[in-house]
Design a protein around this nucleic acid. Structure first.
Length: 275
DNA sequence: CTCCAGGCTTACG
DNA sequence: CGTAAGCATGGA
């Protein structure tokens, strides 16, 4: 049992804001990270962890080394984001495994969070390794590259299944250096990721932000598009519909600065919770 | 029934 | 160039 000092951290918000798909809250939050089951709960500023992973790995996963005060002062450029910082204080980005992150977001296109979570659970149950009762590791690229498409149909991924398997094959064959992206700039990494079939700008931005910690990434999906239209419409007039998402991302980098990926997460959660 | 969901690819003017 | 249909699946 680990007790980790975690000020400015909100476990519930961090795990329920839609950035990760393999955590569930029962009595405690339970998830699988890097092949190990983690059970987590929070008591005030103490994060209480039961896992075989060490303290450093947990701190790294939850990005507890991020200086949130500095990030808040950087992105807090207007009234809206200031109010969201106040409302969702302690929401942190998570440092996900690149392959699981890529696979999850390949599955995310034109899909719901509920369906994505269901598909990722099935993928792990069908093709991962059993760790303990009811908990499975995320299958490696090798494991998925060998799966027949007809066997993948049971994971309910629909038209995205061939994209996931071909991404796995590209990584296994050495055709795509996923882990090398950590050494690239945001722009270079994006140019690489969109070479994968089924990966466009938005999914590339999610992988760059959630797995590689490129905090200047600002993924623009339907939720972000809607909330940005509502609150920052004056900055998007005269932009053609087909260029709107690019324009929103560029505006966000100018407006919120180099930590705009954090701003994205707060805006996204606000739109998720709208009535 | 239609419309939408953390989009992307392809085809057609 | 630009726009639009089509893509599986499930829920509202």
């Amino acid at each position: 049992m680990l007790r980790i000092h975690a000020p400015d951290f909100n476990l519930d918000l961090t795990l329920s804001c839609g950035q990760v798909f393999r955590w569930d809250k029962k009595e405690r939050w339970t998830g699988v990270v890097n092949g190990a089951v983690i059970r987590a709960e929070q008591e005030g500023s103490e994060l209480i962890i039961e896992s075989t992973l060490d303290k450093i790995s947990i701190q790294d996963y939850f990005r507890l080394d991020d200086n949130l005060e500095k990030i808040y002062s950087e992105i807090g450029r207007d009234k809206l984001i200031e109010s969201l910082i106040k409302k969702y204080r302690g929401l942190r980005l998570i440092r996900q495994d690149p392959w699981e992150c890529l696979a999850s977001y390949i599955c995310s296109s034109n899909n719901t969070i509920r369906n994505i979570k269901n598909s990722m659970r099935l993928i792990c149950e069908c093709f991962g390794n059993r760790i303990e009762n009811g908990h499975y590791s995320f299958p490696t690229p090798d494991a998925l590259a060998q799966v027949e498409l007809c066997d993948m149909a049971s994971c309910r991924m629909g038209f995205r299944a061939p994209n996931l398997r071909s991404a796995a094959a590209m990584i296994v064959d050495g055709e795509f250096d996923l882990y090398g992206i950590k050494d690239l700039s945001y722009e270079e990494g994006r140019a690489e990721l969109v070479k994968i079939k089924g990966v466009g700008n938005k999914i590339a931005d999610c992988v760059l932000l959630f797995a590689f910690g490129k905090l200047e990434s600002f993924p623009v999906d339907t939720h972000i598009e809607q909330i940005m239209e509502r609150y920052y419409s004056e900055c998007l007039k005269d932009v053609k519909k087909s260029k709107k998402r690019d324009a929103i991302g560029e505006f966000a980098r100018r407006h919120f600065g180099g930590y705009c990926g954090y701003a994205q997460e707060y805006l996204y959660l606000e739109d998720l919770e709208k009535l």
